[in-house]
Design a protein around this nucleic acid. Structure first.
Length: 459
RNA sequence: GGCGCGGUGGCAGAGUGGCUAUGCAGCGGAUUGCAAAUCCGUGUACACCGGUUCGACUCCGGUCCGUGCCUCCA
């Protein structure tokens, strides 16, 4: 079985051929930690987590690196605004990011490097770029000289003339070319900084990913991922830095062979923005919805497509998940076959550019069969699919809210239930329905079954 | 303006040159004292206009509409 991936570098869906079939290596740009992670950050994390989960089933070894950028002017701005120390901010939001992503079933990357732990690697890389005449020092800054790199712009597909024309920002006087971008910049005494051959300073935005991916994966590696908006300039600049530092000016794939970009998330039809005030934080969502619901919502559309985040979409994912849990719960007396594998149609869908909606359709069909045929093999397959998707990991009865004797409220509920049973036996259905309504008001749903009445929490 | 992406049934969302997913919601039925849950049944939808073809929602051209990026935003 082979994986196909939509490769931004070639603009086509390519068969994935690992550099080393025994060891697949991928990198995805992680967050800059100065605030809570929003649902767009989460999409990236979930998408690449899901890709890694699938790749792990196809290849013996996968190394997934996703960084934390903990040095950035936005962090400095946040520190100035809140009065908190920079390292307090980055530590705090790194921890929150990791726990929020864990709530979404995102497995920790194999390596989560922090930019500040790789300043030396960045300096080394910058020195190589200067040696090769791709970068120059000017007024304490070091800049990448874009005209020195013929292939610049080929990932995002824009010519250098267009870059220069897009003079939306003041061109600093020390730049040789308007398109040149910063590799290193000077820090004042009150700004975070590190000693370097060019004086005390800090790295520019793009160099950290070039340095960290190279150190932890080696060059070239297989897959580089991130949000679609990072194509330009971030990924374009990463390619420029990494290819030019090592003398691969004519080969864009000398850095990463495949480039995979996830689509943007809108919220109720609008782009997330501070001005609209609709930045949707994972941290808030997980107070209201189980992480599995949010994860399923994110995986319900193809990763490369735009996704509109809405209450309705979440509710739809919840309904689906409830039904799947209902099926698992109904199979509680069937011993799942632990050796059961993922069915071929599910793997086929996932290996076709990570087509999660199609895979979900196959899982639905599987669930239906499992419920009807009640075999250990089918239950095992269903649970295996759940595990692969990071869903159906909870206890089904608990998920559905079925009450156990001994629950906090169970005594009162049991008493009402007993009274209702008596009323039913007496054909006093008016009283029986009254009790149903009472329980309903308490958020309790009664389900009569051949084994007697059961109750569960609504929701 | 440049470079992209997209317009599919009430909604979400895959996909394919002919056999027309899947989910959510709705409707009808079974079941139930009534419900809930479940099961069965039910929807020929692919922006518009041309073209290619025996045949297009799927390929080509054009039109309209929406949307993302264009220097620090995942």
């Amino acid at each position: 079985m082979t994986m196909k991936l939509q490769n931004t570098l070639t603009r086509s869906k390519d068969e994935f051929k690992p550099i080393d079939p025994d060891h697949v290596r991928l990198y995805a740009c992680g967050p800059t930690v100065y605030n809570y992670a929003h649902i767009g950050n989460a999409r990236m994390a979930v998408v690449f987590d899901q890709l890694v989960r699938v790749l792990r089933r196809m290849y013996p070894k996968v190394t997934y690196v996703s960084n934390i950028t903990d040095v950035d002017d936005k962090i400095m701005a946040a520190a100035a605004e809140t009065g908190e120390a920079i390292d307090a901010i980055t530590t705090k939001y790194t921890d929150i990011y990791n726990s929020d992503m864990a709530a979404l079933g995102v497995l920790p990357p194999d390596v989560q490097p922090r930019a500040t732990a790789h300043i030396g690697d960045m300096i080394t890389l910058i020195e190589k770029l200067i040696e090769r005449d791709h970068a120059y020092e000017a007024e304490g800054h070091v800049l990448f000289n874009v005209p020195s790199y013929e292939a610049y712009g080929n990932l995002s597909g824009r010519s250098r003339d267009e870059q220069v024309a897009g003079a939306r920002v003041d061109v600093a006087p020390y730049k040789k070319d308007a398109a040149d971008f910063v590799l290193w910049k000077p820090s004042s005494d009150d700004q975070p900084g590190w000693d370097s051959p060019w004086g005390r300073g800090r790295p520019g935005w793009h160099i950290e990913c070039s340095a960290m991916s190279e150190v932890h994966l080696g060059l070239p590696f297989d897959i580089h991922g991130g949000g679609a908006d990072l194509k330009f300039p971030h990924h374009e600049n990463e390619i420029a830095q990494s290819c030019c530092a090592h003398g691969h000016e004519n080969d864009l794939s000398a850095f990463s062979k495949y480039w995979v970009h996830n689509g943007f998330v809108t919220v109720e039809g609008d782009k997330m923005s501070k001005s609209i005030g609709n930045i949707t934080l994972v941290h808030d969502l997980i107070d209201y919805y189980d992480g599995e619901i949010l994860r399923l919502t994110l995986l319900s559309a193809h990763y490369s497509q735009p996704l509109d985040w809405s209450e309705k979409a979440i509710e739809q994912a919840k309904s689906l998940l409830d039904r799947l849990y209902g099926i698992v719960n109904g199979l509680s007396d069937v011993q799942a076959d632990d050796a059961a594998d993922i069915p071929a149609d599910v793997m086929d869908a996932l290996s076709d550019d990570l087509n999660t909606p199609k895979a979900l359709a196959a899982i639905n069909a599987l669930a239906k069969r499992a419920a009807a045929e009640r075999t250990p093999a089918l239950k095992g397959q269903l649970l295996a699919c759940g595990a692969l998707f990071g869903i159906l990991q909870k206890d089904a009865a608990e998920w559905l809210g079925y009450g156990q004797s001994g629950d906090a409220d169970s005594n009162a509920i049991d008493a009402l239930l007993a009274e209702r049973q008596q009323a039913r036996a007496d054909k006093n259905f008016a009283r029986a329905d009254e009790i149903r309504d009472e329980l309903d008001a308490m958020g309790i749903v009664i389900e009569d079954s051949p084994e007697g009445p059961k109750w569960r929490k609504a929701g």
